[in-house]
Amino acid sequence: MSSPYDPEHAPAGDVGAALLLIDSRLKSIHSGRTETDPEEKELMDQFTASLGPKGANDVLDGACTLIFMFMTWLRKAHEEHEKDVIEYVVPTLVATLRMMPRSIPPEAIPTMAGLVIAAGTGLSPNLWRKQYGQWTKAEMNPLEATAFLLAEHINRIADDPDFATRLITEALSQAEEE
């Protein structure tokens, strides 16, 4: 049975730009830096400022597409071991988001859990979220953190710090070839 929240009804957005942001964050964490490099932060600020409203919405949709793709991979990986992706991913994600109260407002955590559950059950996270109204500014950091944490989770499972990024770039390359 088809749902209006199925991924084929959702815009993919700018997955490349969203991946660039997540990959940049992953690399800065893995390099051992605790503070963002001022030059890197300035470049990212310039990049995001150059997007404009439509570009920002495209990156937002791209981040949701990343969450969907990450959860699809995680679901398949968990199913191979006869485990439920929701049971194993969501509690850890929520617990980690709760440990970041300066960046992640507590009221945004249920929305991020809902996005991940929607994606884990095969629904489009951005269409699921949009049924409740427009995105809020307070949800932007949690959305980025959610995509980052899912990518990091995949990297840990694969024991490869670049696996999640490679997973998406290979999928994008395949889509372009088709």
Rank of each mutant, 00 (worst) to 15 (best):
Met1Gly: 13
Ser3Ala: 00
Pro4Ile: 11
Pro4His: 06
Asp6Pro: 02
Asp6Val: 00
Glu8Thr: 08
His9Tyr: 15
Pro11Asn: 14
Ala12Gln: 14
Ala12Ser: 13
Asp14Thr: 04
Val15Asp: 01
Val15Asn: 02
Leu19Lys: 02
Leu21Cys: 08
Leu21Phe: 08
Ile22Ala: 01
Asp23Asn: 12
Arg25Thr: 14
Arg25Trp: 14
Ser28Tyr: 06
Ile29Asn: 11
Thr34Gly: 10
Glu39Gly: 09
Asp45Leu: 14
Phe47Arg: 02
Gly52Cys: 02
Pro53Val: 09
Lys54Arg: 10
Lys54Cys: 00
Gly55Tyr: 07
Ala56Asp: 07
Ala56Phe: 01
Asn57Phe: 15
Gly62His: 01
Cys64Val: 01
Thr65Trp: 06
Leu66Arg: 03
Ile67Tyr: 03
Phe68Val: 00
Phe70Cys: 02
Thr72Gln: 08
Trp73Gln: 06
Glu80Gln: 14
Glu80Ile: 06
His81Ser: 13
Glu82Val: 05
Lys83Ser: 07
Lys83Cys: 00
Asp84Lys: 06
Val85Glu: 03
Glu87Pro: 00
Leu93Val: 05
Leu93Thr: 03
Leu97Gly: 01
Met99Cys: 10
Met99Val: 00
Met100Asp: 13
Pro101Met: 14
Pro101Val: 13
Arg102Phe: 15
Ser103His: 14
Ile104Asp: 09
Ile104Pro: 07
Pro105Cys: 08
Glu107Val: 03
Ala108Glu: 12
Ala108Cys: 07
Met112Phe: 00
Met112Glu: 09
Ala113Asn: 03
Gly114Thr: 01
Leu115Asn: 06
Leu115Ile: 08
Leu115Thr: 06
Ile117Glu: 15
Ala118Phe: 10
Gly120Ala: 04
Gly120Arg: 04
Pro125Leu: 11
Lys130Pro: 00
Lys130Tyr: 12
Gln131Thr: 12
Gly133Ile: 09
Gly133Val: 05
Thr136Gln: 14
Thr136Cys: 06
Met140Thr: 09
Asn141His: 12
Pro142Lys: 09
Leu143Ala: 13
Glu144Met: 04
Ala147Trp: 06
Leu150Asn: 01
Leu150Cys: 07
Ala151Leu: 04
His153Cys: 08
Asn155Arg: 07
Arg156Ile: 05
Ile157Met: 06
Ile157Gln: 04
Asp160Arg: 02
Phe163Val: 04
Phe163Cys: 03
Leu167His: 04
Ile168Arg: 03
Ala171Arg: 10
Leu172Pro: 02
Ala175Lys: 06
Ala175Trp: 05
Glu176Asn: 05
Glu177Trp: 09
Glu177Met: 14
Glu178Asn: 07
